[in-house]
């Protein structure tokens, strides 16, 4: 029976060891959620690719439709990428200098808001030039994909702002901050793909 007990003990010891290394629930949940989001955007992007490849006359964007502001959006893309770098630095500083970390997080949120606002300005201009949901499949896919991304960006800004306010109030939950960061990085990383596929 003694060998039996030692197997038992080693099992319990192993379980204790693995439980210490576990990924927190909210982080794991967010990773799974982001995976489904990636599939959602993959669906949209592949649909867009097919529409682009099979467009009547083989001209994209279709005749009479405005070109997308490639250059201005390149600047905007840089702003969004910058926000991820700021947040990354904020995360690193969290362990050593919380005050400076919070400043970086605030800067990341500001970049996010700037990105969404500039996108909004761009939309207004495009609508004036005659690109709408119903003007062509080009317009429909543009507003669908970029709009879906904008909604995600707004959600990320709200989430990170909430985490920021909670931290300012002295309630720092590391796993919640980590989960919000994952979502933020997802919003940032999916954008260059959209930019390359939809704008260029």
């Amino acid at each position: 029976m003694s060998s039996q007990t030692s197997i038992t003990d080693s099992r319990v010891a192993l379980a204790a060891k693995t439980s210490a290394k576990r990924v927190p629930n909210s982080v794991l949940g967010m990773i799974i959620f982001v995976a489904t989001e990636i599939m959602f955007f993959a669906g949209l992007m592949s649909a867009h690719t097919i529409a682009k490849a099979t467009v009547l006359g083989g001209v994209w964007p279709p005749a009479g439709q405005p070109r997308l502001p490639v250059e201005r959006t390149a600047i905007n893309t840089t702003i969004l990428l910058l926000s991820a770098i700021l947040l990354l630095i904020g995360n690193r500083r969290m362990r050593t200098d919380r005050e400076s970390a919070l400043r970086y997080i605030a800067a990341a949120i500001a970049c996010g808001i700037a990105f969404v606002s500039l996108q909004g300005v761009e939309w207004v201009a495009l609508l004036r030039e005659g690109l709408t949901m119903t003007s062509s499949s080009h317009g429909a896919f543009f507003y669908l994909i970029v709009g879906a991304h904008a909604l995600h960006a707004v959600a990320a800004i709200i989430a990170l702002t909430w985490v920021y306010v909670m931290m300012r109030a002295g309630k720092f939950v590391p796993s919640r901050f980590a989960a919000t960061q994952i979502f933020w990085y997802f919003v940032v990383v999916v954008w260059p793909v959209i930019y390359l596929r939809v704008y260029l």
């Binding site: 995976a35 489904t36 599939m39 959602f40 955007f41 669906g43 592949s46 649909a47 669908l144």
Partner: peptide, 13 residues
């Protein structure tokens, strides 16, 4: 969860 995303995309369209 891996397959629902594309259908949701299609459903929005």
């Amino acid at each position: 969860m891996a397959s629902a995303g594309p259908l949701i995309a299609g459903a929005v369209m």
